[in-house]
Computed example of a mutant assay.
Amino acid sequence: MKTSSTSRRSFLVAGTALAAASFLQAEPSISSPANRAVAEEFLSKWIQAWNQHDAHQLGLLQTLDANTVNRFGTLVQGRAAVEKALSFLHNPGGPYHDVTAPALQLIDVRQIAPNVIILQASWKSPVMNPDGKLDLAKEDEMLVSYTLLKVGSEWKAAQMDLHNVEKMDLPYSSPGQRP
C-alpha cells in the first residue's frame, strides 16, 4: 500500500531522473568562444606563474585535491604535494629556477558539463637528463591535458597530465606528431 509520502518520494525521484536524463542527453557547448577564452586565460595564468617560478601561485590554479601526472609518469596527489614538487623544480638550485618557457598553445577545448572543461595544449620544455639536469640545447615537445573545474567564479585544474610527444609516421598521427 502506498502512502502519500511514498507517492511524493516516487514523484520526486522520477522527476529528478527525468531532469537528469534530459540534462545528460543535452549536447554541451563543446568549443564555444567562451570556452576558448577560459582556456586561453587559464594557460596565460599558468605560464606567467611558471615563468615567475611561483610554486604557490601555480598551486592556487589547482583544486585542493588536484592530481598531476608529470611527463615521466609520476603521479603527484593533492595541491600541497604539487606545490612541494614545483618548489623543488623552481627554487634556487632546482632545474627550472632560472629557465623560462614559451607560452602553451591551445590545441583543443571541450566543455563536458556546465562546470567541467577539458583542454589540451602543446608546450616545449628543455630536455631533462636522467641526472635531473636540463639540457637547454634540446627541447621536448609536450602535450598537456587539463581538466578544469569551476570553483566559485574561478576555473581550477583538478587534473593535469603531461606527455612528451613521440614522433611517429602513422596514418592516425597528428600533423605535429610526425617526424
Rank of each mutant, 00 (worst) to 15 (best):
M142W: 01
L170N: 12
D98Y: 05
A81G: 11
N51H: 06
P130T: 05
T3W: 05
A37E: 09
Q25Y: 11
T3S: 15
E41A: 15
Y172L: 02
S125Q: 09
P33Q: 13
N129T: 14
K124V: 10
R178K: 15
G59T: 13
I107K: 04
A17L: 13
M160V: 12
G132K: 09
Q48A: 10
N91M: 09
P126A: 00
L106C: 11
L58W: 12
S87D: 12
M160W: 08
P95W: 13
P114D: 02
P95L: 04
Q159R: 08
S32E: 03
R8N: 10
L75P: 02
V69S: 11
R79F: 12
H90T: 15
A158T: 03
V13C: 08
L61G: 09
A66S: 08
V82N: 15
G176M: 01
T68M: 14
P171Y: 01
Y172K: 08
P130A: 04
S29D: 12
Q159S: 09
T16F: 10
T6N: 15
E154S: 03
L162A: 13
V76E: 03
A137E: 14
H56D: 15
K45Q: 12
A103Y: 00
A49P: 03
S145A: 03
R8T: 08
L149H: 00
L64F: 08
E166I: 14
A55F: 07
A14W: 03
Y96R: 06
P92A: 13
V165R: 01
W50K: 13
K2E: 11
S87F: 11
P126S: 05
G152M: 03
H163Y: 12
R9T: 13
L119E: 01
L60Y: 12
V127P: 02
Q159A: 13
G93V: 12
E27T: 11
I107F: 05
V13G: 00
I30G: 10
P179S: 04
Y96N: 07
V99I: 07
A37Q: 14
K84N: 15
A34N: 05
F42Q: 02
E154A: 01
L136F: 06
